[in-house]
Write a protein that binds this DNA or RNA. Structure first.
Length: 887
RNA sequence: GGGCGAUUAGCUCAGCUGGUAGAGCACUUGCUCGACAAGCAAGGGGUCACUGGUUCAAGUCCAGUAUCGCCCACCA
């Protein structure tokens, strides 16, 4: 315990100075390490950012929320673990490094696999993990000693072992399938990595001659260039129009290949002509039909999307150029019947936006349905809960319709598939098989095939480590809904498969950040604010607080840089309040003061009661993941109750001069109470604030009398029920209304703020007692010169007046004020109340209301009626008394 | 084609289990009164998208409509 060090709180508030100071202290003292406390551990994991990544506003929001929760739980006395780390991000990283190589005129093929991987690792050492530095700047309290990377040695072993185990169970298989192929990245992709974009295209109608007939059959297609790979034509089985053609042979235009006409239920007779070309090597549906009818698969383009030898004269053309030329050729030869505009969804690579080619190739897959069973049940039974809950439905729908996962990628950067070939032999094993002559599969695994193990592989799995034992399952997953399938769903599946239980009981989905116009943040639009620049401008505390304060639960967040002022201004407010308090604390060590030794005033009891509410509500909102509400509660309590009212009411009790020794003993005692309460509540505010604004709260806390080493490890405040004081709250509410009424009378009557005015109050004995007791606080708040308590019921002849909870406040005018203005004001006020009165009367005349509404509701309306009538009567009297007076 | 979400003050959004519409920003007026102009005080501004229903009572519950947005989907 140290006495206050007010000199530490310098004006102005300077976030840059403060924020450089505390992170090394926390880290140095091991605050971020889990330390057993006897309570169950709280475990959270970072969704590993790409190793190439740089901090975005999306990260800032997510990390702010994660750190908010972790810091709060740490203060609640839980043993906390936050595991940080990075994802090797196969395609993204390989793209970045290839691009930088290209600038040097080098391709990855030039370097060869080994050489290229050396380049990527070197690149990773130099530039990778920048984002982790940025996270420190933001203040995240992760345990850096447990930092993991998905390509770490141990983590890699886990990935390969998972492949091996799934293969042993028959859940990993290899096969020729139509996959999503990106001709630019030149790799297969999973369904989730393809974005479907609605596109204006055309539907081309092409005549295929029937062999041995003058007739033709017309098919409709959006991809005419693939007709070069057609090996059949299909019609619906019960389509009368085409029944006679089933079993006949069509002649493929341009190539003159003879292809059968078959019946297949996949054909929708209502679409196009009801006849469809079958291209088994270039369309997933056609692949299925091709299998059913035993049709050959003719691949007509290569992995770059360039037409190959099977494309005849079109060989060497890019697929889109080929489309034009095929159309031309068909038109010239009279095969093109017509063209219709057609809207359809085009698949695009989520990484590079290239149009995806459904492409026949040999790939590795995970059979997902068996893995989905447990994950499905977990959500249905509530073992895993989603916040907001509507994501459950989305999750279930995906799980129920799950499809096999293509996990092989034709890349070099990643976990190389642990499959070994020697002649006809094939071995699947995490370890290289013994003996000579084995060659490993060339492909690597999908990045998500490693990140789906994150909740346990980071803790040492497959080894039975102490961490794994202690920290699995994790406690909470906080992430974006955009990766619910990529990551969340798969983590749950992997959790059940390899650990036998869900990886976490709760998943909280953060908002998606958009710009002020509602557009997605993107580099090309240039609408993505630079978080580091914002932290430099406003401070990390301000950025964190603002993001949490603004984030709506379950909605997108429309973000505008200017909004960060909210956080900065709030930090400044707290800073200055702390300055005020620290300057008036005196020399006594307040930490040693016992509350019972103090004589608390009504104002003291009021703020302690309000503080207890604030603690209760802030904590409740955190527990229910309503983070914005938590921030909001704290903001308004601090600013509008503690600063605007309590500190203002405390000022006169403090006085200015500590050295003043000739005070009456009761004044000294009162000053002591005011000091203690102001400090106590501020201390509590700082504790509540710390998870939101760790830097400034720690800085201030250290400058005030405090208990313990660091705020970061100080206990979270409890809402003391002994502090709840409804009586004090009612009474102070009256006083506040009274003050506002006087201020309002002054403002409306144009009385200069500097001018002190006399005020007369009439009211019930209780009200007048209260006013008398608090006169010392009321006078400065309302800038009152003389406060007259009219116990004799007398009233001034000429005055501006207002009614507050039945009490009357008079501001004698003495020719200061425009009487017409005051008359108009009273008339407006009376009219407003008349309106309210009418609606209350109407309600009370309604027999149904009286019979059916809950008694306390009816009682409330009755009380309101009485109060309104009383107030109106007093207003009327005030109007009358002014009527007689000359302006 | 299916599903989800949104529609409340000029802007961005709160409003939990139905009981006198709130905040921040912006706006108006006035303030250098010994924490804070990054501030203080006082104000103006809303038929809660529309239509119907349930109810004594609907921003809140139900149904439908409209507009916007998102996700999923093998109609070529």
């Amino acid at each position: 315990m140290r006495p206050g060090q007010p000199e530490a709180l310098q004006q102005p508030y300077d976030p840059a100075r403060i924020e450089a100071r505390w992170y090394p202290v926390w880290e140095g003292q091991g605050v971020f390490r889990p330390r057993p406390t006897g309570k169950p551990p709280f475990v959270i994991m970072i969704p590993p950012p790409n190793v190439t990544g740089s901090l975005t506003m999306g990260h800032v929001l997510g990390e702010s929320i994660r750190d908010l929760v972790v810091r709060w739980q740490r203060m609640e006395g839980r043993e906390t673990l936050w595991v940080p780390g990075m994802d090797h991000a196969g395609i993204a990283t390989q793209n970045v490094v290839e691009k930088s190589l290209r600038e040097r005129g080098v391709s990855r093929q030039d370097l060869g696999r080994e050489g290229f991987l050396r380049e990527v690792w070197a690149w990773k050492e130099q530039y990778g993990g920048l984002i982790l530095q940025q996270l420190r700047r933001l203040g995240v309290s992760a345990d850096w000693e447990r930092e993991r990377f998905t390509l770490d040695e141990g983590y890699s072993r886990a990935v390969l072992l998972v492949f091996q185990k799934l293969h042993e169970k028959g859940l990993v298989y290899r096969g020729h399938r139509i996959v999503n192929w990106c001709p630019r990245c030149q790799t297969a992709l999973s369904d989730e990595e393809v974005d479907h974009v609605e596109t204006e295209g055309s539907l081309w109608y092409i005549r295929y001659p029937i062999k041995g007939s003058e007739k033709t059959i017309t098919v409709a297609t959006t991809r005419p260039e693939t007709m070069l790979g057609d090996t059949g034509v299909a019609v619906a089985p019960r389509d009368r129009r085409y029944a006679h053609l089933i079993g006949k042979t069509a002649v493929l235009p341009l190539l003159r290949r003879e292809i059968p006409i078959v019946a297949d239920e996949l054909v929708d007779p209502k679409f196009g002509t009801g006849a469809v070309k079958i291209t088994p090597a270039h369309d997933p549906n056609d692949f299925v039909m091709g299998e059913r009818h035993d049709l050959p698969r003719v691949v007509v383009m290569d992995e770059r999307g360039v037409m190959n030898d099977n494309a005849g004269d079109f060989r060497g053309l890019d697929r889109f150029a080929a489309r034009e030329r095929v159309i031309e050729a068909l038109r010239d030869a009279g095969y093109l019947e017509r063209v219709e505009p057609h809207r359809y969804a085009v698949g695009r690579c989520e990484r590079c936006d290239t149009v995806i080619e459904p492409y026949l190739s040999l790939q590795w897959f995970v059979r997902m349905a068996p893995l989905a069973a447990a994950a499905l049940e977990a959500a249905k039974k509530g073992h895993v809960k989603f916040y907001p809950s509507r994501w459950k439905k989305v999750y279930l729908h995906w799980m129920e319709n799950i499809r096999d996962w293509c996990i092989s990628r034709q890349l070099w950067w990643g976990h190389r598939i642990p499959v070994w070939y020697r002649g006809e032999e094939m071995v699947v094993s995490a370890e290289r098989p013994a003996g000579e002559g084995w060659t490993q599969d060339e492909d690597v695994l999908d990045t998500w095939f490693s990140s789906w193990l994150w909740p346990f592989a980071t803790l040492g799995w497959p080894e039975k480590t102490a961490d794994l034992e202690r920290f699995y399952p994790n406690t909470l997953m906080v992430t974006g809904s955009d990766i619910i399938f990529f990551w969340v769903a798969r983590m749950i599946m992997a959790g059940y498969e390899f650990m036998g239980e869900a990886p976490f009981p709760h998943v909280f989905f953060t908002s998606i950040i958009r710009d002020a116009e509602g557009r997605k943040m993107s580099k090309s639009l240039g609408n993505s604010p630079e978080p580091l620049a914002m932290m430099d401008r406003f401070g990390a505390d301000a950025v964190r607080f603002t993001m949490i304060y603004l984030t709506p639960t379950g909605q997108d967040l429309l973000f505008d840089e200017k909004r960060v002022e909210t956080g900065k201004f709030f930090a400044n407010k707290v800073w200055n309040a702390a300055r005020l308090v620290s300057l008036r604390l005196g020399d006594e060590d307040l930490g040693k003061v016992r509350e019972a030794s103090l004589t608390l005033t009504l104002a003291d009891r009021w703020i302690l009661s309000r503080f207890a509410h604030a603690v209760k509500n802030t904590t409740r909102y955190l527990k229910t993941y309503r983070f914005n509400e938590a921030a909001n509660t704290l903001y308004h309590f601090t600013w509008n109750e503690y600063c605007d009212w309590y500190l203002e009411m405390a000022k006169p009790r403090w006085g200015f001069d500590d050295a003043q020794t000739d005070l009456a003993p009761e004044r000294i005692e009162d000053r002591r109470a005011a000091r203690w309460v102001a400090w106590k509540v501020l201390d509590g505010i700082l504790r509540l604030l710390h998870p939101f604004m760790p830097f400034v709260s720690e800085e201030i806390w250290q400058a005030l009398p405090h208990d313990g080493e660091l705020l970061a490890t100080a206990p979270w405040p409890r809402a003391k029920s002994a502090w709840l004081d409804p009586d004090a709250e009612h009474q102070i509410a009256f006083v506040m209304e009274l003050v506002v009424a006087v201020r309002n009378l002054r403002a409306e009557n144009g009385i200069p703020p500097g001018k002190r005015v006399p005020v007369i109050v009439r009211g019930s004995a209780e009200q007048l007692d209260l006013v008398e007791r608090l006169a010392g606080q009321i006078r400065p708040l309302a800038r009152i010169e003389a406060l007259t308590i009219a116990r004799d019921g007398s009233r001034p002849a000429v005055a501006a007046s207002a009614v507050v909870k039945g009490a009357e406040v008079f501001l004698p005018l003495e020719g200061l004020v425009d009487l017409d203005e005051e008359r108009a004001r009273l008339a407006r006020e009376a009219a407003r109340l008349m309106g309210d009165l009418e609606s209350v009367k109407k309600k009370l005349r309604n027999q149904d209301f009286l019979d059916k509404a809950r008694p306390e509701v009816v009682e409330k309306e009755r009380a309101r009626l009485v109060a309104l009538e009383e107030t109106l009567a007093k207003l009327n009297r005030a109007q009358e008394s002014l009527r007689a007076v000359q302006s």
